[in-house]
Design a protein around this nucleic acid. Structure first.
Length: 496
RNA sequence: GAGCCGCUAGCUCAGGCGGUAGAGCAUCUGCCUUUUAAGCAGAGGGUCCCGGGUUCGAGUCCCGGGCGGCUCACCA
């Protein structure tokens, strides 16, 4: 490990303590309060009453700032709940505390304190230390107090520092935890059962994406990390779990960007005897509930946008939207050559062999997606890009499916599930043909899933919501890396 | 995978056309008993991301590489 001057100085202070026979890493100090509890209980108590309070406050935390002057000093103690100022004064604090602070303690050190409260001239609630103990020495200095830690690479690689010195980062991850808890509560209250299905699968199904491959030694077989839990969850619906959800990690072997991390958190839920239309209502309820609880209202600020999640949301037909933004008439959209030509004009690069439905989807992403800022359900996708969704009763070239867009990006995907085993088999076979034609993201054939459908899956609707993107929205985070504690990074290398 | 940008002290950042590498905070020494970006005086601290090249001389120019950011492509 590299050793600069500041590390050496701190190590020297530690060995000085050792020479006095003091334990360097004691574990016998147990705080009874947090700084927030102290501030909450006594923040508004007038000075003269503070002096009469004899409650013992035992606090522990990290020194985040330190101001020495002569025979007194102030520092801010930070714990999980916030900060509180501590005062040490010669003549009023014990001599050991004064010496410890003057000769040993640095910003970043973890200490325990006890003592009564008072208010300084400027009115700040402050604890006057009658006990001050070093619990853990920080050998490395913290980033600068004023600018904090700015370097984005260091913030992601050394998230512990980011969390320590950038309060908004703690807030983001607190909100993330809250959103996940509330989402779980929302579904449990509606009689859904939470389950866990395999992350390692011998067939990576349930979505159109490239999987990661790993190897099982004892069985000598390749396994895939799941790209979606979908097919397992629907097996559970066949098994009589009529309302089921899973919150977990998916893995996709695709590009990394501000919107994509190789592993990401997904919510999937399935409800029997419901259609995708019921799920639109349920989704509106979920987002409205989350916004109330997490942000105290239905308005979310995201970048330059203000987003209102008050139901009901706009519902936009897939084909009508393409017409609106390309100038096609509904009749023109039926003419395959016209559509393919338009796609080429717009620089949508797809193999000439790609099915029309795929071209339409790409056309949609190119011309419509950027306009969908307020919550919008886009309804009615081509069957070619939806191999697990139920066909529309009046136009079987399309399926009963919606995608939810907010702030120009896809947040959720849902459909009435295909429960006709024969149609499902045909769809799988079509996917196989596309795979053989070179589409590595085409779905593979899952025979057991078809078998499950043959036992009968009740009419069901299911939905997936990308939790990371949801958290981005609720925390005004421009990059998915801002809502993942340890985002994927290449390993750092010393030198070249 | 491609294009553009970045990488200088522990942290945040300057370094014009190639000429002995700088500031603030932090650290160290001294002073200072209600400060809060405390203050005053002084000091130390550098593999300028790595490797080549051009040059009398490279943080700076050229080539190659690494890591990161943004945009694009694939995707959620």
């Amino acid at each position: 490990m590299e050793e600069n001057e500041q590390i050496l100085v701190r190590k020297k202070k530690l060995s000085a303590l050792k020479a006095q026979g003091l334990p360097l890493y004691p574990n016998d100090f147990f705080p009874t309060h947090t700084t927030a509890e102290v501030r909450q209980r006594f923040g508004n108590v007038p000075e003269e009453h503070l002096q009469q309070l004899q409650d013992p406050f035992v606090l522990a935390g990290r020194i985040m700032s330190l101001r020495h002057f002569g025979k007194a000093a102030f520092f801010h103690l930070q714990d999980r709940s916030g900060q509180l100022q501590v005062y040490v004064r010669q003549g009023e604090s014990p001599p050991e505390a004064v010496t410890l602070l003057r000769e040993v303690l640095d910003i970043g050190d973890i200490v325990g304190v006890t003592g009564p409260l008072f208010r300084t001239r400027t009115g700040e609630l402050t604890l006057k230390a009658t006990t001050l103990r070093l619990l853990t020495k920080a050998l490395r200095p913290l980033p600068e107090k004023w600018h904090g830690l700015q370097d984005i690479e260091t913030r992601y690689r050394q998230r512990y520092l980011d969390l320590l010195v950038n309060p908004h980062v703690r807030e983001t991850f607190r909100k993330r935890a809250q959103i996940i808890q509330l989402t779980r509560q929302f579904f449990l209250e509606r009689d859904f059962l939470e389950v866990e299905t395999p992350v390692m699968q011998s067939l990576a199904g349930g979505a159109l994406a490239r999987p990661f491959v790993t190897h099982h030694r004892a069985l000598d077989m390749d396994l895939y990390l799941r790209i979606a839990p979908e097919l397992y969850l629907k097996r559970l619906v066949v098994g009589g779990i009529e309302r089921v959800f899973e919150l977990g990690r998916n893995f996709r072997n695709e590009g990394v960007s501000t919107k994509h991390n190789p592993e990401y958190t997904m919510l999937e839920f399935y409800q029997a005897y419901a259609t995708y239309e019921h799920l639109m209502t349920l989704t509106e309820e979920l987002f409205f509930f989350l916004a109330q609880e997490v942000n105290n209202g239905p308005l979310l600020v995201y970048g330059e946008h203000q987003i209102d999640v008050t139901p009901p949301w706009r519902r936009l037909d897939f084909r009508a939207a393409i017409c609106q933004y390309t100038g096609f008439s509904p009749a023109e959209l039926e003419q395959e050559e016209l559509v393919r030509t338009k796609a080429r004009e717009l620089g949508v690069l797809s193999p000439a062999a790609a099915p029309l439905g795929k071209i339409l989807e790409e056309l949609f992403e190119a011309v419509v997606e950027p306009h969908l800022i307020q919550p919008t359900f886009v309804i009615g996708y081509p069957v070619e890009v939806s191999p697990l969704a139920r066909r529309n009763d009046t136009d079987p070239r399309f399926v009963d499916r919606f995608e939810l867009y907010i702030a120009g990006r896809e947040i959720a995907n849902a459909f009435s599930e295909l429960n006709d085993p024969e149609d499902q088999l045909q769809r799988f076979l079509q996917q196989l043909r596309e795979r053989e034609a070179g589409d590595e993201e085409a779905h593979s054939l899952d025979e057991d899933y078809v078998r499950a459908l043959e036992y009968g899956m009740p009419p069901t609707a299911g939905e997936g919501i990308g939790i990371d993107r949801l958290v981005m929205l609720f925390t005004n985070s421009p990059s998915i890396r801002d809502v993942i504690l340890f985002p994927h990074m290449r390993p750092e290398r010393k030198g070249s």
